[in-house]
């Protein structure tokens, strides 16, 4: 029982990370019907940039730097990989372009930070707290709080501020939003910036618990994609539920079967998603919402 509780707690922390990445997929999908398949690499870059910056500033001052870096990185992805595809109405150009950019970012990271997994200093005590015999790392709590906090802030921004409403308007009807005087190209660039920013935050939240390194992004990005499809690409916090289910399933698999198979549930989920919704991955989710 205690072990089960332990596994669930660890699974929650990982699951929140999937949830945040999937949330990032949603952010760009609603405004542009495109997404960044290099989202895992955005997380990895955020985490590695954070690792470099943290040596100078400490953890908390590092956060705004990493968030700003994430925004710039996301805007670059949109400008280089997505904008042209949207303009020409290309159905799939952005898919190849964002995958290619992800690979470039990974190579870049390997050259700067090397190929090895690196330890990320934890800003919180590394001694676990004990609740009814279940050990919880303070950093795991920080992951949950940070992830939920970020999503709530974005939601609040969308609902309360006029610029957030402009984002929602663009998601509803891009042409009509343009008629309101909203620069919808800029909104799409902004949603990419926000999307990479959430990934970068996820990167520096998860790194102290796992490890960081140039190859940390790929599997995370793929599994979170499956979570996003299941949880809903259009909106909502379904991605949190989806992320948690996957995170917990993974830790259970890791313990009861073998840590070697830890990644399998997520990838199986991805395969199932791809085989049950082969053509309508993007389309149906969009139509259902409108």
């Amino acid at each position: 029982m205690q072990i089960l509780g332990q596994l669930i707690v660890s699974g929650i922390a990982v699951g929140m990370i999937y949830g945040v990445i999937a949330f990032g997929y949603q952010l760009t999908f609603v405004t542009s019907k495109t997404l960044n398949f290099g989202q895992g690499e955005a997380l990895m870059l955020g985490s590695l940039v954070g690792l470099t910056v943290v040596a100078y500033t400490g953890y908390w001052l590092m956060l705004p730097v990493v968030l700003a870096f994430g925004m710039v990185q996301g805007a670059v992805v949109e400008r280089l990989g997505v904008r042209q595809a949207i303009r020409t109405g290309s159905e799939s150009g952005w898919i190849m372009a964002t995958i290619a950019l992800g690979i470039i970012f990974k190579n870049l990271a390997e050259n700067i930070w090397g190929r090895d997994a690196l330890k990320f200093p934890s800003p919180l005590p590394e001694a676990p707290l004990s609740f009814m015999g279940v050990n919880v790392l303070p950093m795991e709590i920080a992951i949950v709080v940070g992830a939920l906090g970020m999503m709530l802030l974005v939601e609040l921004f969308n609902r309360r501020s006029i610029h957030g409403k402009a984002v929602v308007a663009t998601a509803n009807d891009r042409d009509a939003a343009g008629l309101m005087g909203i620069n919808t190209s800029l909104v799409i660039t902004f949603s990419y910036a926000l999307s990479s920013m959430t990934a970068a935050l996820a990167g520096v939240l998860v790194a102290p618990v796992t490890l960081t390194g140039a190859s940390m992004g790929g599997a995370l990005g793929l599994k979170a994609f499956a979570v996003a499809i299941i949880g809903g690409l259009s909106s909502g916090f379904g991605v949190v539920a989806g992320g948690l289910i996957l995170g917990i399933t993974e830790t259970l698999t890791g313990y009861y079967i073998s840590t070697g198979y830890k990644d399998v549930p997520g990838l199986v989920l991805l395969l199932l998603v791809l085989s049950f919704r082969p053509s309508g991955l993007f389309g149906t989710a969009a139509i259902k919402k409108v």
């Binding site: 006029i162 409403k165 929602v168 009807d173 009509a176 939003a177 309101m180």
Partner: peptide
């Protein structure tokens, strides 16, 4: 072409987006 997922009032405010911003 109203913004279906937004309340009436927000639709109107968006009409004034250029003024508010």
């Amino acid at each position: 072409r109203v913004f279906a997922t937004l309340p009436v009032q927000d639709n109107l405010l968006l009409g004034a987006f250029t003024r508010i911003t």
